[in-house]
Write a protein that binds this DNA or RNA. Structure first.
Length: 395
DNA sequence: AGACATGATTATAC
DNA sequence: GTATAATCATGTCT
């Protein structure tokens, strides 16, 4: 993966650096790359500790040492060391002289590092990815049992999910993504460190034979880090994609509805028909119902929304149901009410509601339905209990 | 399989 | 924010 890129990058840099130097050497010193011919020109300073009696021999020496410097950069550290060539190079009698010349040339040509224009501003794309990963709970500190943030986000996305099962599924998958992400990130970091160390060792080693300033090493490290961070960005991007896919699947799964339990429907219907004149439960009432039915508040809201509109659309169809729940409520209330009625005989039945008000309009029942409406509303108005058929229906 | 029931979503209005 | 109304998508019944 990344290694090859980095190696290529670094090798390129090193090679180009060497090429530059070679060119300079060629133009200034008249020494060919091969090191086998010297065309005259600027004379090298006399090597230390050398009498300089043999001019051709000296040139040959310079050629040799340059050739060795050139070829050594093509080898790995281990290879060079194994062949013991570096040692030979370092101990070469011409080395100090050549080294000082290289330093001088480098300084004069300003080859080394001119105002490292690196330090680019933070990539907005990377920031977006980071933010998303943080928000999804993939990046950042571990939160209990996977990702609290994601669970919260998922809940906020609709809140009507069949909570536990799908949530835990979602969280488990997200944790998986998180783990993969962190493992990969760690791998990259480790690889980056290893490679940086390797390159730094290489450069340090080379700095014994050619001038390499600490700034140059720093620059090289910067190049490596940028390469690795671009790979990290790819990882972040694919992680984000995975999270998005997971989320969309999760949201799709939410559409898969499951019918509420009979008990829950009963509780909701009881409330609906006992508040038919105003079937709009308050927030507290919704919470209470949600608790009783083991569903969410939004599900209660959905249910009442659906119920109101469907009831309104076809009151006749729901009449039977209305009567049934009216009867139920009446029976339940009967015992409690009976005592009260007995105690205070003065109470006469209140006028029953003929329908509930939706927004600005009131829905009236037609005459055919009025009888049942009375039954429907008797629990609010204190009408006598209805007669039941054998199947439990109201006559 | 098709019809109907029902929970969820969406568009729109306030 | 909540509401209605229409619609979607699935569950259930026949």
């Amino acid at each position: 993966m990344s290694f090859s890129i980095c190696v290529a990058q670094c090798t390129d840099s090193l090679a180009s650096s060497m090429d530059d130097q070679a060119r300079i050497m060629q133009s200034i010193g008249g020494v060919s790359l091969s090191g086998h011919s010297v065309q005259g020109g600027m004379a090298l300073p006399p090597p230390h500790g050398h009498d300089g009696s043999d001019g051709d021999g000296r040139k040959q020496d310079i050629g040799d040492i340059l050739h060795q410097i050139m070829t050594i950069t093509d080898q790995s550290l281990d290879e060079a060391q194994a062949k013991n060539r570096k040692h030979g190079l370092n101990c070469h009698r011409m080395k100090p002289a050549l080294f000082s010349v290289l330093c001088e040339i480098k300084e004069k040509t300003g080859l080394s590092i001119r105002g490292s224009q690196e330090e680019d501003p933070p990539d907005p794309q990377l920031m977006r990815l980071d933010n998303m990963l943080l928000a999804e709970g993939v990046a950042g500190p571990e939160k209990g049992g996977g990702s609290a943030a994601s669970a919260a986000a998922a809940a906020a996305a609709g809140g009507a999910a069949d909570s536990s099962i799908e949530h835990s599924d979602y969280r488990a998958k997200l944790t998986q993504i998180r783990q993969i992400y962190h493992t990969e990130l760690e791998k990259y970091e480790q690889a980056c460190n290893e490679f940086t160390t390797h390159v730094m060792n290489l450069l340090r080693e080379q700095s014994r034979t050619r001038p390499i300033s600490p700034k140059e090493i720093e620059r090289m490290v910067g190049i490596i880090h940028r390469k690795f961070s671009s790979i990290q960005m790819q990882l972040k991007q694919s992680t984000c994609e995975a999270v998005m896919i997971l989320r969309s699947r999760f949201l799709d799964a939410r559409r898969k509805r499951r019918n509420f339990s009979k008990q829950a429907t009963e509780i909701l219907n009881e409330y609906f028909y006992s508040h038919l004149s105003n079937p709009y439960p308050s927030e507290e009432a919704k919470e209470e119902l949600a608790k009783k039915c083991s569903i969410t508040v939004s599900q209660v809201s959905n249910w009442f929304g659906n119920k109101r509109i469907r009831y309104k659309k076809n009151i006749g169809k729901f009449q039977e149901e209305a009567n049934l729940y009216a009867a139920k409520t009446a029976v339940n209330a009967a015992h409690a009410v009976a005592a009260a009625v007995q105690n205070s005989q003065a109470n006469s039945p209140t006028t029953p509601n003929s329908g509930f008000q939706m927004k600005d309009e009131e829905f009236q029942l037609d005459s055919a339905e009025s009888k049942n409406t009375l039954l429907t509303n008797m629990f609010t108005g204190g009408y006598p209990a209805p007669c039941y058929q054998s199947d439990g229906r109201i006559q």
